[in-house]
Amino acid sequence: MNINLTLFGQTISFAIFVWFTMKFVWPPITAAMQARQKKIAEGLDAAGRAQRDLQLAQEKAAQTLRETKEQAAEILDKASKTANAIVEESKQQARSEGERLLVAAKAEIEVEVNRAKDQLRAQVAALAVAGAEKILESSVDAKAHNDLVAKLASQL
């Protein structure tokens, strides 16, 4: 327990250590810590902003989706209506076309029939005339008559 020169030796080394700490230890470390603090604060800030942005984007996306769905439904509705109308119209057209064709066919058939009738009539008349001519001009022969009549009959 005796005080001696050690006292001053200790004080001097203390002073040197404090000086060194003040010069080379404290400033760089605290500066780095502050820089990191700032970086972390900025990072947190950015993260918060990004989250907000994300939320907004999600809301927007949801809304767009909703709108799109509505539009799609509308378009589908319209399309089916149009399709129905087209089908209905086609049916109508087909029916009227059919009827028209039918009527035309009937008319044509009638015309044909009439024409055939006229032809037949003309031919029957000609045949009758020809038959009569043959009967009057040639000798009567039962057998020949029979043939003639049969001929006539097959031509009717």
């Binding site: 250590f17 060194f20 700490t21 080379f24 230890v25 404290w26 400033p27 760089p28 470390i29 500066a31 780095a32 810590m33 820089a35 990191r36 700032k38 970086k39």
Partner: peptide, 14 residues
């Protein structure tokens, strides 16, 4: 003390 702390101080970064 000085060795440890100045080593960290030298490489201190954020």
């Amino acid at each position: 003390f000085l060795f440890l702390f100045s080593r960290v101080a030298k490489h201190a970064n954020a």
